[in-house]
Design a protein around this nucleic acid. Structure first.
Length: 525
RNA sequence: GCUCCCAUCGUCUAGCGGUCCAGGACAUCGGAUUCUCAUUCCGGCAACAUGGGUUCGAUUCCCAUUGGGAGUGCCA
């Protein structure tokens, strides 16, 4: 135990008088007035300039938890690492959430929501800890710590600032003043009284009770270089005063759980419920081993890329949600729920082991999603995508919305028999590119049967109904002594340049007489 | 090194001591669907990491081993 610091020393140590007392803060941020069982959750990214798929995964858990319990989901920006600031980073996060339709509700009463603007709160809490002798100013320099670390690893001790290695742990007031007089700016460290031979029991909502050795490290609470809090201290202050009930975060935080429990206990506050999520993984192409998706090496890990490729946002969400709540898929297939917002899930069911990101399954969700969408929704999505992300070809294709609509309507009338060859908006447009003369590529490899095509030309009438049209094809086949399919295939390749297409009759109807004739004539040249 | 987490078909998983020679979905492979492809339908292949316990009985509980992951920063 150490003595608490007097108010005037605290003021000097912190570089200013704390703005609030603890009870003032309690009053300023009262418990929320929410129905019983409402979850207060938050997504708390550090603005690094990317929105990672794992981040989206967490946003989804957070917002879904709030939504299904009639609670609140907040967005808090953890911009306490001034060295790694990236401009536009916040905009990217906010935009991504908006595009996925994931809304947050940042009630001003509990703000501000940028940690860099909450300095007064952190310093006020730190002052309390300092006054009670549960924290102390530490004047160790980076070089000092490096030296300590080197000694520790040479001797086989765990590294870190703890016990006998915490040089400034028991500085007297006079010693502190001496440092201060030299112009040194301290960091504020936790005065840990944890005993690593003792165990602390923590709770994780999906894993249950987990025990760890008690923390004995004097971790930094307030950094000396900018006076901002570390993650641990910000988490303590923010999630308490924002009245967060459930903290959803990556499994990399699991090992700091004892520290966080320790901090909450010191303040006499109730810790939130913790939900530590596992990672979204991939198989590394070089090593063949499973590893976390990385935005650097895996383009699909970057949400911006997903959007730019034109993945249907609802499908991406459904894919991720099915990992979170594996019962969703079956409920949806059975028709019990229409979308993820209707399906209630239990935090306990969130998987605890890392899931491989399965592109094939995402594709399946996307195909299902597009196939069950109305034609007008399909068209709207494609047009919106082309306008925002499309290249000149895509933009040209969405110019005549009427024609595009007819192209995309093919074989969509029977709900049980809708084609599933559209996956992304980009791929949809390239899939149907042959409908536009400027993007049509004649097939030069196919050996056309000229007689069949000529015969077709002489009997073709765009106004024929489907049966009449087909009967003519059968007639041509009979006369020529070939299979019906041979006639159809010659036509198909002449008109579309491809051997695989949707229903030929529908294609011809959409293309119109002129286009059909010119393409067949083109094939005959 | 130390600490912690995890372990069912190729993938995501259901399973919470007997109903499991393990169920679903994706992928894959066959077959059917009066033009290709797609769709739809039917069918097939395919898993409880290993070794000890506990129990009348273990996929389910406990321990060890192995394997994978995370943490060990004045980064979050």
């Amino acid at each position: 135990m150490r003595n608490g610091l007097k108010p005037d020393l605290i003021e000097r140590v912190l570089g200013g008088k704390p703005k609030y007392t603890l009870s003032e803060l309690e009053e300023k941020f009262p418990p929320r007035d929410l129905p019983d069982g409402a979850f207060v959750t938050r997504f708390a990214p550090s603005p690094t300039g990317f929105m990672h798929i794992g981040g989206l995964y967490q946003v989804l858990i957070n917002s879904k938890l709030a939504q299904q319990s009639h609670g609140v989901f907040m967005l808090r920006i953890e911009d306490t690492d001034t060295k790694r600031e990236v401009k536009d980073a916040v905009r990217i996060i906010v935009d991504s959430l908006a595009q996925f339709g994931l809304q947050y509700n940042n009630d001003e009463k509990y703000g501000p929501y940028y940690q860099s603007q909450r300095r007064d709160i952190y310093h006020s809490v730190a002052a309390d800890l300092l006054a009670r002798g549960l924290a102390y100013p530490c004047f160790l320099t980076a070089a000092d710590m490096e030296e300590i670390r080197a000694k520790q690893s040479a001797a086989g001790f765990p590294t870190g600032i703890y016990g006998e290695f915490a040089r400034d742990r028991d500085l007297t007031d006079d010693e502190i003043i001496a440092h201060l007089d030299k112009g040194e700016i301290p960091s504020i460290r936790l005065y840990s009284t944890g005993n690593p031979n003792q165990r602390i029991f923590c709770k994780d909502a999906v894993r249950g009770s987990i025990s760890f050795p008690e923390n004995n490290e004097d971790l930094v609470l307030i950094k000396s270089n900018d006076g901002l809090p570390t993650y641990h201290f910000a988490h303590l202050c923010d999630d308490h005063f924002m009245r967060t009930t459930h903290v959803v975060r990556g499994a990399e935080w699991l090992s700091s759980l004892p520290l966080h429990y320790q901090l909450f206990r010191m303040m006499g506050w109730t810790p939130p419920q913790y939900i530590h999520t596992s990672t979204l993984d991939t198989i590394d192409a070089d090593t063949g081993k499973q590893r976390k998706l990385s935005k650097r090496h895996d383009p699909e890990a970057n949400v911006a890329n997903l959007l730019a490729s034109g993945w249907p946002v609802a499908a991406v969400l459904e894919y991720l949600f099915n990992i979170i709540a594996s019962g969703y898929e079956e409920a949806k297939l059975k028709g019990a729920v229409k979308n993820i917002w209707e399906y209630e899930f239990r935090p306990k069911k969130i998987p605890m082991s890392g899931a491989l990101f399965d592109m094939k399954k995402l594709e399946w969700w996307a195909k299902e999603n597009i196939a069950t969408m109305s034609v007008s929704d399909l068209v709207n999505n494609v047009v919106a995508w082309a306008q925002k992300y499309g290249e000149s070809m895509h933009i040209a294709q969405v110019k005549d919305v009427d024609y595009l609509t007819r192209v995309l309507s093919i074989e969509r009338d029977n709900p049980k028999r809708i084609r599933k060859d559209f996956i992304t908006w980009r791929q949809t447009l390239s899939e149907v590119a042959y409908f536009w003369d400027e993007f049509f590529t004649p097939n030069r490899d196919f050996e056309f049967n000229r007689d069949l095509l000529n015969e077709f030309l002489s009997t073709f009438n765009i106004n024929d109904d489907k049966d009449t049209w087909w009967n003519k094809i059968v007639a041509i086949a009979n006369t020529a002594g070939v299979k019906n399919g041979d006639v159809a295939m010659n036509l198909r390749v002449a008109i579309t340049g491809r051997t695989n297409t949707p229903d030929l009759y529908s294609i011809m109807q959409v293309m119109g007489e002129k286009r059909v004739l010119s393409r067949v004539q083109g094939a005959l040249k």
